[in-house]
């Protein structure tokens, strides 16, 4: 059996006095789709950002494809080529068209020539169903379209792992579907994804595992059937039932 694609080993993170992650450990294999859930402030975003080192950890190790990426001598830019990220509020480059957003990394990070980069850029826009919006600027796109461009931008770097931080929570409810659908397609294609999301439909149908994070610790980690039908920890059950009611109210 080969190494796991991603491994967090006893990761600690604090901001000053505040302990945000307290000994987080888990593994993901290539092709897995893990969905992270947990209350606000539990450290979900922080955990994701540690994986591409937008945030530096205070203790423990993180391995990507067998390499320890939290060593001091790791080239973070090299790491980030291999780990894509999709943001809650999109963070599309406001001065670039959809195509420009997708190709910037190819050209400036991968040093591709313009023609090749554009060719690939169009492919990725097609993958998220936005070929016709290639020349639109972010301000001219709907929220759902923006997020799909965000996904295409991350995909373009051909990452080993894609991180999603609440990709649908800034969207109007009627726009959530188009983004979830794209994510489902990616999952089906075997792309490894670590997704912070409370989109339960996606979690149930696409996740290999669900990780419930509370107060900086993993309370429960297992396949969706287990967490939804038969949660081991009382807190997991409580949290999930609160999510369900919140959903029904919407």
């Amino acid at each position: 059996m080969s190494d796991p694609l991603l491994e967090l080993d006893d990761v600690y993170k604090s901001y000053g006095e505040e302990q945000v992650l307290s000994g987080v450990s888990f593994e993901m294999d290539a092709g897995d789709v893990d969905v992270v859930i947990g209350p606000s402030g539990s450290g979900k975003s922080t955990m994701l950002r540690c994986v591409n080192r937008l945030t530096e950890i205070n203790g423990g190790d993180i391995y990507l494809d067998g390499d320890c990426i939290t060593d001091a001598d790791t080239d973070v830019n090299e790491l980030r080529k291999q780990v894509g990220m999709v943001f809650q509020d999109f963070n599309l480059f406001a001065h670039l068209t959809a195509l420009g957003n997708v190709t910037l990394g190819l050209r400036k990070v991968r040093d591709m020539d313009k023609a090749t980069a554009q060719e690939q850029g169009y492919e990725h826009l097609e993958q998220v169903g936005l070929l016709d919006q290639a020349d639109s600027y972010p301000a001219e796109l709907s929220g759902g379209q923006k997020q799909r461009v965000g996904i295409a931008r991350a995909l373009a770097m051909d990452p080993k792992l894609l991180l999603f931080d609440e990709p649908t929570s800034a969207l109007d409810p009627e726009l959530v579907g188009e983004v979830v659908e794209v994510m489902r397609d990616l999952a089906a294609e075997g792309i490894t994804m670590l997704v912070v999301s409370h989109e339960m439909g996606f979690a149930r149908s696409a996740a290999s595992d669900i990780i419930f994070l509370d107060d900086g610790q993993i309370v429960e980690h297992g396949p969706p059937e287990q967490l939804f039908e038969n949660p081991q920890a009382a807190r997991t059950g409580e949290f999930l039932s609160r999510l369900e009611t919140a959903h029904e109210e919407e």
């Binding site: 937008l54 080529k81 990220m85 943001f87 963070n91 599309l92 480059f93 406001a94 990394g105 770097m157």
Partner: peptide, 15 residues
Amino acid sequence: GQLTAARAIGLSKVD
């Protein structure tokens, strides 16, 4: 977030 997103696709801070 603009610089964060740029860093996330592997651009150095200067780039």
